[in-house]
Design a protein around this nucleic acid. Structure first.
Length: 448
RNA sequence: CGGGGCGUAGCGCAGCCUGGUAGCGCAUCUGGUUUGGGACCAGAGGGUCGCAAGUUCGAAUCUUGCCGCCCCGACCA
């Protein structure tokens, strides 16, 4: 992509409303634009990151045998009356009426709708288990939206729903999502820690929040240091195998958000030097809720004996748009973002320091073509801006590698390569640089 | 929803207390000099001062109402 054709409205000054780093940087780097309280437009740069995150989420859902679909954002009130949540949900739900005065709502979540879809198509226990998911915009009329996209009213969420014939089987579905979540966040460079969470009226131990540690997180969290160093399950994990040992490993050490925190247990179970008391960002939440929706909404299958069985359900959410904020919180410095390769809007920034200079233009054009041919996403700064502005802008948008071509290096047949994460700069021969960078990009995209 | 604060040019702000018809920095445009970490000189454009009503000869400024946004608390991906 040529920067001259792109739309990248960067801000030199920090917008007054932005309180935390991720919000500030997303506004400054021209990734989002606020259109209302908790409502944002995704500008091209931010949209590219959102898409990459979404794709990683999708790949890991698919790997865990969940099946993608897409449900509408607008739902009917009647559907929610079946579960009893239309009145229970409160003002967080955006209620609207259509031209015929039918009561509708902009979906804050989809348990009712997926249950309705499931019951229409599944009759027998032999069709179970099933896991269905979609990645779709939600609207929750939050009391207080804040921190940019971290708590927006409109946000992109992956929500998956599982259907099983009994609790034991439901636990398998739960475990699959548990492992999928560990992998999903790890692939984005995030260290997520599953923490036991409030299960609400159902009880039991089948609810976990996945928390990314960050000073600006909204929740206070407490956990054993050992969890931070735990290796996530590999790509080769067989999701048809018994995943319980993995879950046991991750739940063996203490980890709880403040509402579930038990200080006494914390002090007994965790040696003082291993106690982490920090703040975190909730990026995922998994839930088993049994017959909460299947019973009132009559989502039943015929069992082996021919009798009706209420299906056992679970739901599994990932805050896709929130993840952008979480990643920036984890990877940034004074100058700007520092994107991990798998979610970077472009892999490489190519900076032409002297646009209009024949030699510079030619060298950049050649390199640009070579990189693109090698499958590298390149943002080519072909604008006539001054060097200082170009460097600052590249640092701000935080592409993992910057390749700079200017008259000085060109004389020696060299380009300068900067690693945005380490800050290291080195010179590379013009002939080899495309191949070297392409190899580094490929290596960084290859995940476990 | 309770508490606090803010709406003045694209962005960041001053002016408001003590009414007299709007200013600064950055950005933008033109010309020139520049060009390896956010240049310099000269010139130019851009604002119904959130909206409405009221007070007044006169309102960005005072009064009232409304709208919007931000921050602190209880909820959530």
């Amino acid at each position: 992509m040529r920067l001259s054709r792109f739309y990248l409205p960067v801000l030199k000054e920090t917008p007054a409303d932005a309180q935390i780093a991720s919000h500030r940087l997303m506004l400054r780097a021209g990734m989002i634009r606020q259109e209302g309280a908790g409502i944002y437009a995704w500008l091209p740069l931010g949209f590219r990151v959102l898409k990459k995150i979404e794709q990683i989420v999708r790949e890991e859902q698919d790997r865990a045998h969940a099946v993608e679909m897409l449900m509408p954002t607008i739902q009917s009130a009647d559907l929610w009356r079946e579960s009893g949540r239309y009145d229970a949900y409160g003002k967080e739900m955006l209620r609207i009426t259509d031209r015929a005065d039918r009561e509708m709502l902009y979906g804050p979540t989809n348990e009712e709708m997926i249950t309705e879809i499931f019951r229409a198509g599944v009759r027998s226990y032999k069709d179970l288990p099933k896991m269905l998911y979609h990645i779709q915009w939600k609207f929750r009329d939050e009391i207080r939206p804040r921190f940019g996209i971290m708590r927006g009213r409109e946000f992109l969420m992956k929500d998956c729903y599982s259907f099983d014939v009994d609790e034991e089987s439901a636990r398998n579905s739960y475990n699959k999502m548990f492992v999928a979540y560990l992998r999903t966040f790890a692939r984005m460079g995030l260290k997520s820690i599953p923490m036991r969470a409030d299960t609400g009226p159902i009880g039991g131990d089948l609810s976990h929040e996945f928390i990314v540690l960050a000073d600006t997180g909204e929740s206070a969290v407490f956990c054993d240091k050992g969890l931070v160093d735990m290796d996530v399950p590999a790509k080769t994990t067989d999701f048809d195998s018994d995943l319980q040992p993995v879950i046991d490993q991750f739940t063996s050490l203490y980890a709880a958000t403040d509402e579930m925190h038990d200080e006494k247990e914390f002090e007994t179970k965790v040696a003082s030097e291993n106690r982490i008391s920090a703040r975190g960002i909730e990026v995922g939440h998994i839930f088993f809720f049994g017959e909460k929706y299947s019973a009132p909404m009559k989502a039943v299958v015929a069992g082996p004996d021919g009798g009706d069985i209420n299906v056992q359900m679970g739901s599994y959410g990932v805050g896709v748009s929130r993840l952008l904020g979480a990643i920036i919180e984890a990877y940034h410095d004074e100058a700007g973002c520092k994107w991990p390769m798998p979610v970077a809007p472009f892999h490489v920034g190519l900076v032409n320091l002297r646009v209009g200079d024949e030699a510079c233009d030619a060298a950049c054009a050649k390199l640009y073509a070579e990189l693109e041919a090698a499958g590298v996403d390149v943002l080519y700064d072909d604008t006539p801006a001054r060097p200082g502005e170009k460097f600052a802008r590249m640092d701000l948008i935080g592409l993992p590698y910057q390749i700079t071509i200017g008259p000085r290096g060109l004389g020696a047949g060299e380009a300068e390569v900067k690693d945005r994460h380490t800050g290291e700069k080195s010179n590379a021969s013009l002939d080899d640089v495309a191949g070297e960078i392409a190899a580094k990009v490929k290596a960084a995209l290859d995940y476990a």
